[in-house]
């Protein structure tokens, strides 16, 4: 069954058509890769799915429900977590608090909830704290939980973004160039991490330029070029697709 369906989506900025009638189906519990040259519309698509942009045309369905007009915080509460191409952590907050922000939101800290907080939700707070520690252990940052996010090394910051997104308890996780700027060892750890996430029955949609990472972890791949989808299929067929080689992979791949 499709978890996420992009139906005929177009996005225009002024005269620029960043996405042009894109169709995409992401199935439950698969790892889906999105590749293409810079400016092809990959991040735009992420922004559309998470509600930062409203599509000019078309629909976005998550578990069969239209989400294209929902505000971002509601979409994320439905179970869509994401990371960012340019790391956007809460730099002045502790590593642990970064993970907790999303978890609090999911457990609904409202106006009145805040006022009642001292009374009843100690138990909930404890649960959140434990879960946040688990997630940090999973991404290998448990020992650094009390440090400021900005003091982490680059690769660690990327992993913290993943942990923070997992704090939302997502069904679908969008990773925007998670391997960017990582060295070979860090990339191997990332591939392991993504495999681990899949083991949690979380569907992953991944934008990535590193073909080694993409071909290793993705079960299906779609290729965008100038806002259009030019190919879709398993890693093997994508690697051998004439148009993809021409516009993106290049010869010798």
């Amino acid at each position: 069954m499709e978890l996420l369906e992009i139906r005929n989506v177009s996005q225009e900025f002024g005269g620029l058509r960043a996405l042009d009638s894109v169709n995409l189906q992401v199935r439950q519990e698969e790892i889906f890769g999105l590749i293409g040259p810079n400016g092809a519309g990959k991040t735009t698509l992420f922004n559309l799915i998470t509600g930062i942009y409203k599509p000019t045309e078309g629909q976005v369905l998550f578990r069969g429900r239209n989400i294209e007009n929902l505000p971002p915080h509601q979409i994320s509460r439905l179970g869509i977590g994401r990371t960012f191409q340019n790391i956007r952590l809460f730099r002045k907050m502790s590593v642990l608090d970064n993970v907790k922000v999303g978890m609090h939101a999911v457990t609904r800290a409202g106006f009145w909830g805040t006022l009642r907080e001292w009374g009843y939700s100690r138990k909930e707070e404890k649960k959140i704290d434990e879960r946040a520690r688990e997630l940090l252990a999973m991404v290998g940052l448990y020992d650094k939980r009390m440090e400021y996010a900005e003091s982490l090394a680059y690769g660690e910051q990327r992993r913290l973004e993943v942990a923070r997104a997992l704090g939302l308890n997502p069904v679908l996780l969008l990773l925007d160039e998670p391997a960017a700027g990582m060295n070979t060892r860090e990339k191997e750890e990332l591939i392991e991490l993504v495999a681990g996430i899949r083991g949690m029955s979380i569907t992953v949609l991944l934008v990535e330029h590193d073909m080694n990472v993409v071909m290793n972890v993705c079960e299906r791949i779609a290729v965008l070029d100038y806002g259009r989808k030019i190919a879709e299929g398993d890693p093997y067929s994508i690697r051998n697709d004439e148009r993809v080689i021409q516009s993106y992979l290049g010869v010798g791949m």
Binding site: G51, P71, P72, F90, K92, M93, V101
Partner: peptide
């Protein structure tokens, strides 16, 4: 605190 650092990222973490 999260919002004062990054409004968009906060909203994407489910913060209203």
């Amino acid at each position: 605190r999260a919002c004062s650092e990054d409004l968009d990222a906060s909203s994407l973490m489910g913060v209203n």
